[in-house]
Amino acid sequence: RNLTILSLPEDVLFHILKWLSVEDILAVRAVHSQLKDLVDNHASVWACASFQE
């Protein structure tokens, strides 16, 4: 069985995303439609995003 980041529970993905910069979140968003939906549909992803580079 192949395990990917998409195999992780949504709460784990949120925990990972909250540590990323805006640039990295946008890069993750571009990788897969499921990740794009996760980022686009949950404001909590952006609430913790680091807007300082």
Rank of each mutant, 00 (worst) to 15 (best):
L17K: 00
W46F: 08
I16T: 02
L26F: 07
H42T: 06
H32P: 03
V39L: 09
D37C: 14
T4Q: 07
P9G: 08
L13A: 06
A49I: 08
Q52F: 10
E53G: 13
R1Q: 07
Q52H: 12
T4F: 01
D24P: 04
L35P: 01
K36H: 07
K18S: 10
V39D: 04
F14C: 11
T4I: 01
V39E: 02
V28S: 02
S50A: 14
Q34F: 08
L26Q: 11
R1W: 00
L6K: 02
L20M: 07
L3A: 03
S21Q: 07
A27W: 05
L35A: 02
N41K: 15
W46T: 09
I25R: 06
V39R: 02
H42P: 06
V31Q: 06
A30N: 08
L35D: 06
E53Q: 13
H32Y: 01
A27Q: 12
D11S: 14
L13E: 02
W19I: 11
W19C: 15
Q34H: 12
D11C: 11
I16K: 00
E53F: 05
Q52R: 13
V39P: 00
L17D: 01
E23S: 11
A49P: 15
L8K: 03
P9W: 01
A27V: 10
L20H: 02
V45T: 15
L38K: 09
A49Q: 14
V22S: 07
W46M: 10
S33D: 06
A30M: 15
T4L: 01
S50G: 14
L35N: 03
V45S: 15
E23L: 01
I25F: 03
F51T: 13
L38R: 05
A27F: 00
L26M: 11
Q52S: 11
E23T: 07
C48Y: 08
I25E: 02
E53C: 06
I5W: 05
K36E: 02
H42Q: 09
I25K: 05
E10T: 08
D24K: 01
H42K: 13
D11H: 08
E10Y: 06
L20I: 04
V45C: 13
L8W: 01
H42C: 10
L13K: 07
S21N: 11
L20C: 07
L13D: 04
V22I: 14
F14S: 11
S50M: 07
V31L: 02
L6F: 08
V12C: 09
V12F: 00
V12K: 00
E23F: 03
L3G: 07
F51Y: 10
Q52D: 09
A43K: 12
V22F: 11
H15L: 10
W46L: 12
F14I: 14
W19A: 08
F14A: 15
W46Y: 07
P9S: 04
D40P: 02
D11G: 12
R29G: 02
I16A: 01
S7P: 03
D37N: 13
L3H: 09
W19M: 15
N41M: 10
W46I: 09
S7D: 14
I25L: 09
D40V: 05
L17T: 05
D40Y: 01
L17P: 00
D40H: 06
L3N: 09
